[in-house]
Design a protein around this nucleic acid. Sequence first.
DNA 1: TAGATTGTTAATCGATTAACAATC
DNA 2: TAGATTGTTAATCGATTAACAATC
Lengths: 216, 216
Amino acid sequence: MEEKEISQAVIGRLPRYYRYLKDLKDSGKERISSQELSRIMKVTASQIRQDFNNFGGFGQQGYGYNTNYLYEEIGKILGLDHVHNMVLVGAGNLGQALVKYLKFKKSGFNFICAFDINPQLFGQTVGGIPIRPLRELKDYVDANDVDIVVLTIPKSDAREVAHSLTRTNIKAIWNFAHIDLELPASIQVENVHLQDSLMKLSYNIHRNSISPDDDQ
Amino acid sequence: MEEKEISQAVIGRLPRYYRYLKDLKDSGKERISSQELSRIMKVTASQIRQDFNNFGGFGQQGYGYNTNYLYEEIGKILGLDHVHNMVLVGAGNLGQALVKYLKFKKSGFNFICAFDINPQLFGQTVGGIPIRPLRELKDYVDANDVDIVVLTIPKSDAREVAHSLTRTNIKAIWNFAHIDLELPASIQVENVHLQDSLMKLSYNIHRNSISPDDDQ
DNA sequence: TAGATTGTTAATCGATTAACAATC
DNA sequence: TAGATTGTTAATCGATTAACAATC
């Protein structure tokens, strides 16, 4: 019954495998060896086999992996066979873009309601879902089956909203606010810090321009 | 003259230090020890000192670090003392949200033009910058001082656009398309894969629900 | 069966943490 | 000076890569 904890380094690579396997299966490829996948994805074959074997054996000696089966299994590991209900908190430009994007993708990530503090937005809709006053968030979450709260509000408000969600049954926060949220371990937090990403980019630009001869 | 290569693990932590140091200096704190910062940020004091010492000594024995000085120095390391000209490729919801957000922040990341394939958008503006036909991108980039191209277009188009930029003088691509771009080493790529982020979140939700007793 | 390729153990590499001498 | 805390070396830990026996 004792499951060994799988490192986030491994988890972080699964979506990329998933993406390549989708392309491979869609292009009609039925089987693939770790070595061939290694060449395509530019990672070692050893790492590929180690990664998959964290979750049990999906391959067959002498044959390799069945692309479609492996694709499906990774999908299950990632929980993509479930539908996740989501709620948007902060119906500004970024929030609205996310709702429209995920609606368009028709994935298992399903926005059901949006919230904002701006009274002008109350009663309007984004991508087919209603925008309600932020003060109704807690009651809504308690009354409905909400898995993920998507936070696209300024950092000054993010902490308070996160705090109000501590005793609800939500499972995760997808956090776009530039702040570290404090939440009980039962609520997962996944941060998308766009500023941090830009800063890393900026560093790498200047690193190269300072010493232009050492390539990489 | 031989600079040791600094690992991306270290670079990835710099923006977070930068954020905490800003808050500390803004709240009037003049000095801080690695130990105190360690408690606030929940990382080891050892890691903090190691990280900073990759770039030279910013502290003083027996005293600690001057918050404002350290903040400024990290900003310089990240290249935030430069202005970066950016161009948006794909003026959809997400792209427009990014332009408006960064305009609002008044950071050194400065959008100067947007491009799209939709003729209805030509001549319109987003956050004060014009939207031009995508086919003019290459000429525009060659004629202007563009540092960063922000790619917010579907993956099917992203590869082609990236390819058309290989021989330009741009320094980096901030890539929101769900694809791995192939570019010469002189062009940095920083990926923001929102789908991957959601999948990781999904994994972590289900990991916990499968074995609810092992907390973390 | 022979060849191929996985699953898995062992070796290596790199990153994090601990320890402490240097020094403000 | 004595106390505090850095800068830096050494020890540990974890993740990646290599090797190979198992097996399809």
